[in-house]
Simulated assay, not measured.
Amino acid sequence: MNLREAQGHISEAEVAVSTAVRQLALGGIAVFWVLAGGSTRAPSADWVLLAAGAGLVAALACDFTQYAYTAARWRCWVDGKVRAGQSDPQADIEDGPLRGARLLWWGKCVLLLVGYAFLLVAFVGTGFLD
């Protein structure tokens, strides 16, 4: 396996994780809504459930911000290269423009786990498992 193939595998895995984070966060928000009693009225919740909801919403916000940041950053980088007359499609690309996106990727993963940990605590606190 060469470096290009490895980068392709990494990219595929990151996309799969991003999709899973998005789906799990939305599913967790639905569970939050049910546990908070929000089927016919506005939900009310204790601090544990609110922390779970905040973590899940923050994970979605990181997901959106990661893609928006990446798109804007790459657009600026490509435009700068074109203005400088460097339009060779085979040119090497430095990794610098992706550092912020990588932090946001890890942030959404951690926030999802934190949100689900609080959701689990809230779920156990309902007495449903007794």
Rank of each mutant, 00 (worst) to 15 (best):
A68N: 00
V124T: 01
Y116D: 02
R75Q: 11
E14R: 14
G8P: 05
W77L: 02
A45L: 01
A72I: 02
G38Y: 04
W47I: 06
Q66R: 15
A42C: 04
L98I: 05
L3P: 00
P43G: 13
L26V: 15
T19P: 01
W33M: 12
P97T: 08
A58W: 07
A122V: 06
L112S: 05
H9W: 11
K81Q: 15
A42G: 11
A51W: 04
V17E: 13
W106P: 00
V17Q: 11
F128M: 08
C62P: 02
A20D: 05
Y116H: 08
L50E: 03
Q7R: 14
G8Q: 12
G53T: 03
A36P: 08
R99Y: 13
R102Q: 12
L129Y: 05
S18H: 05
R73F: 00
W106D: 00
L112K: 05
V31K: 08
L50C: 04
R73W: 00
L56D: 07
D63K: 03
C62I: 03
G100Y: 09
V82E: 09
T126L: 10
L98N: 14
A16F: 09
G125D: 01
S18E: 11
V82G: 02
D92N: 11
G85A: 07
S44M: 04
Y69H: 13
V48K: 07
D92T: 13
G127H: 05
V31E: 02
F64L: 15
S39A: 11
G100S: 09
Q86F: 05
G80R: 07
V34R: 11
V57N: 01
T70R: 10
L3C: 03
L104Q: 04
C109R: 09
W77T: 05
C76F: 02
V17R: 13
A25Y: 00
